[in-house]
């Protein structure tokens, strides 16, 4: 391991909040917007992405000595495509209804910039232990972001959470929240909130000094 690169523990913690893939790096927006109209599809998506990300990280890290600079992006995408095919077949075999509902968004994991950027930044430079920690941390961060958006959209849009009714009977479902515009609006407002909290904390830290 080269000096100056973060250790396994740092990589793990970074992925969850300080470098959260969605709120901090704005990566992988396509699934974040498309599958968060309910908790169940969002969590299935998070699981599939985690599967691909961790395995691709391990694979790339194992062959990092063999990578040629000009071919590395192609090797990354082909590795990811292989694992996505496996994940897609597994979903179709064991969770057929869910795989139909997610439709083209499972194969679209291949072009999720999150996975390519983790292969490039971490796995192609560090050993397997760090790569696994990085994959798990980033996956948890991604799942957390998907869960937060899906919670808002499902509760406001259909009055349920993970399919269980949570809102009182008189609650009028906000149909717009489960439709495409609701995805953009929710993510925009949540991004604003995260940024607001960060700015407030930075201000506080500045005052203390």
């Amino acid at each position: 391991m080269t000096r100056g690169e973060p250790t396994a523990l740092e990589r793990f913690i970074n992925g969850i909040l300080p470098e959260n893939p969605v709120y901090r790096q704005l990566l992988g927006m396509c699934p974040v917007l498309a599958v968060t109209n309910g908790m169940k599809p969002a969590m299935t998506m998070a699981g599939a992405t985690a599967f691909v990300l961790i395995l691709a990280n391990i694979m790339i890290s194992l062959m990092r000595g063999l990578l040629k600079p000009h071919l590395r992006i192609l090797v990354f995408t082909l590795t990811i495509a292989t694992f996505v095919t496996i994940a897609d077949r597994l979903l179709a075999a064991y969770m057929y209804e869910m795989s139909k509902q997610l439709g083209p968004y499972v194969p679209l994991i291949i072009v999720n910039c999150l996975i390519i950027s983790r292969c490039e930044i971490c796995a192609s430079k560090q050993d397997v232990r760090v790569a696994v920690a990085d994959g798990v941390g980033m996956s948890l961060g991604f799942a957390l972001a998907l869960a937060s958006i899906a919670t808002v959209r499902e509760i406001l849009g259909s009055g349920t959470w993970l399919g269980l009714p949570v809102m009182p009977g008189f609650w009028p479902n906000w149909g717009i929240m489960v439709l495409p515009p609701g995805a953009f609006l929710t993510l925009g407002l949540l991004l604003g909130m995260v940024e607001w909290v960060n700015q407030a904390r930075a201000k506080k830290a500045g005052k203390r000094e």
Binding site: G188, L189, L191, G192, Q199
Partner: peptide, 18 residues
């Protein structure tokens, strides 16, 4: 200030989607 950049762009995109 907190909405500057991506936040406001996403909200505009939401209105465009509508």
């Amino acid at each position: 200030k907190p909405l500057k950049g991506a936040g406001i762009a996403l909200i505009v995109a939401g209105i465009m989607a509508m």
